[in-house]
Amino acid sequence: MQLPPFAYHRPASLDEALARLSTAGDSVAALGGGTDLLINLKLRLERPRALVSVRDLPELAGVSLDASGTLRIGAGERLTDLAAHPLIVVPYPGLAQAIRAVGSQHVRNMATLGGNLCLPTRCWYTNQSENWRGSQLPCWKTDGQVCHVIKTAPNCRAIHSADSVPALISLGARVLLRSSQGERELLLADFYRDDGIENNVLAPGELITAVLVPPARVRSTFVKAAARTGLDYGYATLAGALTGSNRVPKSLLLVAGSVGTMPLVLQKPAQIILAEGLNEAGIEAAADAVRDDLGEVTNLFTPPGYKKRLMRGLVRRVLHELRRQKLPAAD
């Protein structure tokens, strides 16, 4: 597959990049590592007039702790570097696991965190060449009036499957957004929308500059079930982050990925653990309860009913791992 023509800009500063992105609105796209965007261009799913390379902007670089202990991760950082970074691996093992679960090492060598957070949703229909798609009716994403995933759906139900996202949400991460209009900061959990097309709240011309992970001594983990480990998108993923002890847990966030158009915070299983404690009986009850939380699951890439059963297993695995894990040492 060949790329369509486009203009290419490589600005030297964030301000220059934002000016470029704001002049032409929608028809200009930010280019991170290109590991997804370039494929979507080849598939003719997007047709930007110009690409603005943001990966090497100095303002998007760096991993650092501020005075309050908040971890700042620049959106241009490569996933390979992040997966091995001591400021991530030691305090947030769940985040390191999630980043390492993205694609293959080849992909992670090129891919950026900002690109992962803005990964568009996917489905079996749009993930094909334009020629192939021509054999079926166009869908919501390709200017049609049908969702091939859930036939009755009034909008696009393609799957959100960016692996770093559930882990970051479980840690209460925030994103810093910049446009030529100014800066705003929001919870990553509030960044996504329940729509396969307008999947996040990023305004035209806006960039993610950094991700902020609040200081907390947490136990954290991430599991991914996929056809092939080390390359494929997940059938389902689950991230968990816990504070407090097994007997008296203080907070627990369980966040599922690859189950719907946006990451899903599991309510009931977490409530059960907080009420019962992180013990054998609590874990079984939490695993049983996950079904109710899932609601309408997009059974994309898996047989009907499979994801609900799978999630039950993932809840068990995550909770058992959190129960076993030692709290990272305080520094």
Binding site: Y8, G34, L38, I39, Q105, H106, N109, M110
Partner: peptide
């Protein structure tokens, strides 16, 4: 390792 098919 770089995937040259995804590099400009």
């Amino acid at each position: 390792a770089v995937l040259s098919c995804l590099a400009l």
